[in-house]
Simulated assay, not measured.
Amino acid sequence: MRMITLTALAMTLMAGRSDPLAGRIAGPPVDCVDLSRINGPDIVDAHTILYRQSGKRIWVTGPVGECPSLRPNDTLIVEVHGSRVCRNDLFRTVTPGLSIPSGICRLRSFVPYDRP
């Protein structure tokens, strides 16, 4: 149920621009992703953050619960411990032109979306 909701939400919110998840298949969620293998993050909306691993895989995560300060074009500052970004890692955002970071939010699990 959650994966379907994420896909539908991401597709709806990316209307008008190329959908990076189009044609991809969701896999089982994982708790951590190796930072040396990913690029990003790209904030889609208040519920969706994308990390790109390659042309084949995109990881989808977002905040646990509400994170009203999470908006496209903001800068994401993640508190990473070690070489992986993980579920429950804390993050803040900074809006361009402002120097005060937002309140603290936590990351959910990471769902891989692969090209078949």
Rank of each mutant, 00 (worst) to 15 (best):
M1I: 07
M3Y: 00
M3C: 02
I4R: 12
I4N: 08
I4E: 12
T5S: 14
T5Q: 15
L9N: 14
L9G: 06
A10T: 15
A10Y: 01
M11K: 14
M11V: 00
M11E: 14
M11D: 10
T12Y: 04
L13E: 12
A15T: 11
G16F: 03
G16K: 08
R17P: 02
D19H: 06
D19A: 05
D19I: 06
P20W: 02
P20A: 06
G23K: 03
G23P: 04
R24Q: 08
R24F: 01
A26K: 06
P28L: 11
P29M: 05
P29T: 02
P29A: 14
D31K: 11
V33P: 01
D34H: 09
S36I: 05
S36V: 11
S36D: 13
R37Q: 13
I38D: 10
G40A: 08
P41S: 13
I43V: 15
I43P: 11
D45E: 07
D45W: 00
A46R: 11
A46I: 04
I49Q: 04
L50I: 11
L50E: 06
R52S: 15
R52W: 00
K56W: 02
K56A: 05
W59S: 09
W59V: 12
C67F: 12
C67R: 07
P68E: 10
S69E: 06
S69R: 00
L70T: 03
P72V: 13
D74C: 08
L76D: 04
I77E: 12
I77D: 10
V78C: 14
V78Q: 13
E79P: 00
E79Y: 09
E79W: 02
V80Y: 03
V80R: 14
V80Q: 07
H81L: 05
G82A: 08
G82L: 01
S83P: 00
R84V: 05
V85T: 13
R87P: 00
D89A: 12
D89G: 02
L90M: 11
L90D: 10
F91M: 10
R92Y: 02
T93F: 07
V94H: 01
V94K: 06
T95F: 01
G97E: 02
G97Q: 06
G97T: 07
I100H: 05
I100W: 03
I100N: 07
P101T: 06
P101M: 09
P101G: 08
S102Y: 06
G103P: 04
C105T: 08
L107T: 13
L107R: 12
F110N: 03
F110R: 03
F110T: 06
V111C: 08
Y113E: 00
D114W: 00
D114L: 06
R115T: 03
R115V: 12
P116G: 01
P116A: 12
